[in-house]
Design a protein around this nucleic acid. Structure first.
Length: 358
DNA sequence: AATGATACTCGGC
DNA sequence: TTACGGCCGAGTATCATT
């Protein structure tokens, strides 16, 4: 029998800041991503629980968050390099308890612990992990245990913060009455389509004809939505190999002129290249990403004849792509721009290839 | 028919 | 003009090449 643990850190960024600045502990704390345009331009990355009580949440424009804030609410800029270091140490702990391991994001991971055989011993592992993270890093996490990744993930969301929720095989029915957009993978776009078919709950989705789902969402997604609505998931827990790296930034002011846009793109290319070097990655495809004033996303990309790791390739290519784009779309006014490398060949990939051969 | 390149959508944190 | 970050990965459509 499969036994999967999903575990994530509770309001991670905010919790880390509360540790660094003991004087703000217990107050509402909002971690922000600033765009650099004026002092209230940006969005909320994480809000701690006292801030959530005020109605402040992730993804919210800073304006809105400030309007809802109390006098004592603390706003801090996100310091992702620092959070990354804390995360790396915690992931080492998580990994040490797993047969196989999959880090999903900076604060979240799946652990396959099937070798424990019993639910009881899986529960013990989860408790041990939580205790070790609390002792070593003074942070709490919420964990879910289930027979597959989907159920484990849904379970971990049940009790937060500092929760531990077990969902046994056959207990999926607990989730059936929840609104369908609580199902992992269903966002606003999918919800809008499902509403046409009067689907409100996960149960409604499970009763919808599978062929209809495939017709609406395509083969792969349709199948997945059907399986997920029934609490089924056959995805293995396995190390993710990096597919792409990118950097983006809001430009100082909206513009359609190359000379005002390119400097930001250039500095993103340099930042990106630092990461490429640090991780010893080679790439073949270079893309530019642009978001215009209507928040529409545009991308243009080009593949090189062979793998590269040079900054010059990134710079030359992005410069050319931007020039061509602006020439072809002279009316498009840009707000944010970024650079991405993909079609990677990195050391992780080499490792898994060797694994495969033996 | 398979593969690759490109542009775009969606969802999550 | 009253509106918003910076990432990540998976998937789809379409076209070109082989």
């Amino acid at each position: 029998m499969k036994l999967i643990i999903h575990i994530d850190l509770d309001s991670f960024y905010a919790s880390v800041e509360e540790l660094r600045h003991p004087e703000i502990r217990g107050k509402p704390v909002v971690i922000c991503m600033y765009s650099g345009r004026g002092k209230d331009s940006g969005a909320v990355a994480t809000a701690n629980y006292p801030a959530r009580k005020l109605g402040i949440g992730s993804g919210m424009p800073l304006r809105t968050a400030k309007a809802r804030a109390s006098k004592e609410t603390i706003f801090l800029p996100a310091d992702r390099e620092f959070y990354r270091k804390v995360s790396d140490r915690i992931m080492v702990i998580f990994r040490s308890y797993a047969d196989s391991f999959e880090q999903r994001s900076i604060d979240e991971a799946y652990l396959d612990v099937s070798s424990c055989k019993t639910l009881k011993s899986a529960e013990l592992i989860a408790k041990k992990i939580k205790a070790e993270v609390l002792k070593k890093e003074k942070l709490t996490c919420s964990a879910g245990i289930g027979p597959n990744k989907l159920v484990a993930k849904m379970a971990s969301r049940e009790q937060k913060p500092d929760g531990l929720t077990i969902v046994r095989e056959g207990e999926w029915k607990k989730f059936l009455d929840k609104p369908v957009d609580k199902l992992f993978g269903i966002g606003p776009k999918t919800l809008a389509v499902l509403q046409k078919f009067k689907v409100k709950t996960i149960r409604d989705l499970s009763r919808l004809d599978k062929d209809l789902l495939i017709k609406e969402f395509g083969e792969r997604k349709g199948h997945l939505f059907h399986e997920h609505s029934l609490g089924r998931d056959s995805e293995p827990v396995s190390e993710l190999i990096k597919q792409q790296l990118s950097r983006m930034k809001t430009i100082p002011k909206d513009s359609k002129q190359f000379k005002e846009i390119f400097p930001t793109m250039q500095s993103m290319a340099k930042e990106l290249h630092k990461n490429v070097k640090a991780q010893d990655i080679k790439f073949r495809t270079i893309s530019i990403i642009m978001i215009n004033t209507y928040m529409g996303l545009k991308t243009r990309s080009k593949s090189l004849p062979k793998l590269s790791s040079s900054l010059k390739d990134i710079l030359d290519c992005s410069k050319e792509l931007l020039k061509v784009y602006l020439k072809e779309n002279p009316k498009d006014v840009m707000r944010r721009v970024g650079v991405k490398v993909s079609s990677l060949d990195n050391p992780e990939k080499q490792k898994s290839l060797t694994e495969f051969r033996k």
